[in-house]
Design a protein around this nucleic acid. Structure first.
Lengths: 189, 189, 189, 189
DNA sequence: CACTAAACGAGACGGTACGTCCCGTCTTGAA
DNA sequence: TTCAAGACGGGACGTACCGTCTCGTTTAGTG
């Protein structure tokens, strides 16, 4: 028998797999329970309701997404490098991410709070993460580091979610985007 | 008896009212039909399914939102003015909007695709709307008008959804935000 | 589509069949619904709850039992004959009755209120039914017809449910039982 | 810690108390266990299943009922006196008996096998108990003692369960009932 | 007095069924 | 013909228990 936290993990993974296959609305608790090798009652014992389970899955995946993202930019030595590595990594994750692909097609609503700027917490966290790099960089005169971090966070999330005309799998394009569009006018020339 | 397009309108309004009161998930077709003074079967004749009805309501409200927004910036004479009026109007609409308030509290997910940059169509439309103003403005040398419009659309949507440190009900702050943060470095000095 | 009263009948019959096969406790609403070719929701629409359905089935079968019983004693010309025919018919019905057999083995409790004297209504009804025959008979002096009818009802139900030493399939024994044990001392000699 | 037989007793009493309060169906093993100050597992260790526990409670109460009944007729000196004391005692017990009252209202089915004549064992036991008194009495000519005992047992159970027009709390009425209705024609005049 | 074995409390779990809600389909009858 | 009214099948949700099982603890009884 798995320990309690492991059980939670197992259920989250299983539910996540179901969502990846069938979308959120089409995933019944019966499905998730079967996938987890667990009874439906246990889902309720751990998560209380369908909605809370789904929220937990999203929160869990959200956390994993950013943990991997942070991991991928660990080696960055400069603000520009953080932005470049981050955009590439995030975009790649989104593109390859089976669940995100499925969810974005069938129910974009559910996962977007994560990446959109409406829920300001994510933007704040990104800005906080960027702040040390901003402080280390040489800003153009009159630039407030916190404002810059906030601005960069907004841009990061915007391009991460929807690159638009840019192909973020191409290092050159990422470099150009970051250098000219995002940091242009921010760093001291 | 109302004509067919009127019937659609009545149903959309009624459903919208229900959503405002109880949120999307807690609004049953029974509720919407009762509110519209219409039988449940009629909802199906007009919209096919619950999901399509909800989508129609969102699309309808989305359209109304941007129609009012465009109306509010009609008198703008410059790019800066468009951005300022637009941000103020949009933010005010969101703040005062009963449905948006309710929905953002209970199910932020559903209405966000509308305003977030992920669904790129909205950003594209905003960019297209801004383009003439951009072309009319005197850009800093080397700036591509389309890229600028895209950039401004991203920023517009980002700040509209989450102003962050700015209070967009204050004209001065909006002016500062637009002048220094959004257009700074873009317009020819 | 069956009319409403027919639907009730169909459901009652189906549930009755399930009870005959598996007993009351082991008959789920799912079973009954399937047997009736009806959805589980419809059971609730007609009967409200499992308990009410079961009660309805018992009441329905109870009614049928006594209707047949009354039918079988239609030709009786005297009090003695009513008792004889009734005891034989009732006992035969109980013996052959598939549901009663099953239920009496697995859950005697449920059907006994019907036949036991505790729920006095049944006894009263039997007594009322017997009263005309009693009035027509020549009672021993000092006998109150109503008291006699009540007494005979008690005995009828007692022997019907548990003949004890008597074999009620044998006309001779029934005759003896009625003549000597039940009516002895009651009719004028 | 209570000894094993005491534990059984405690559990039976506790379950009995729950049944008295809430009826059989509405008494969960959780309730009974809590009332007994015992864990649910212990109920299973002692009784195996819910059904067996309930049966045990009924059997236990059944036994207590008749033990008290026999005790109450200990001083009877004649057949008539046995019947009189017995009917009064039994009726009083049933009337005052909290559990019986509750159960008879909510689930008459469960306790009736005990008192009805269908389960012939009870009738047999009563008849066996009455037999010595019958043998001691002076029967009308041609009366078989065993048949008389059986007949009296039937009547006893019938009136005990449902007195009908008689008020068994009145000694006079009991006397009349026994003398004229039950023993009339049986004893030698 | 320490030690072991049985009894017990606590509670997680799978499973079954209940009662409810609501969707999407269909029929009927009235305007 | 269109629509309101509403019955129906189907499916899922959330809840309640049951019966099983496994821990850890307490209590007896024994060496």
């Amino acid at each position: 028998m798995a320990s309690e936290p492991e059980q939670r993990e197992i259920i989250l993974q299983a539910t996540y797999a179901c969502i990846a296959r069938w979308g959120v609305k089409r995933t019944s608790l019966e499905d998730a329970a079967r996938e987890a090798g667990v009874s439906r009652a246990t889902l309720y014992r751990y998560f209380g309701s369908r909605e809370q389970l789904m929220n937990a899955v999203v929160a869990w995946e959200y956390r994993r997404f950013f943990e991997r993202l942070i991991d991928d930019v660990r080696d960055a030595g400069s603000l520009a490098e953080v932005m470049e590595l981050g955009l590439q990594s995030a975009r790649k994750a989104i593109t390859e991410h089976e669940v995100l692909q499925m969810v974005l097609q069938t129910e974009p609503a559910l996962l977007e709070p994560t990446f959109s700027a409406i829920g300001s917490t994510t933007r704040d966290r990104v800005a906080q993460f960027l702040l040390p790099y901003v402080l280390e960089a040489t800003l153009a005169p009159g630039r407030d580091p916190e404002a810059v971090a906030d601005y960069l966070a907004r841009m990061f999330l915007s391009y991460m979610g929807a690159p638009g005309r840019w192909d973020l799998t191409e290092s050159d394009q990422v470099k150009s985007l970051v250098e000219y569009e995002l940091l242009g006018g921010i760093l001291a020339s």
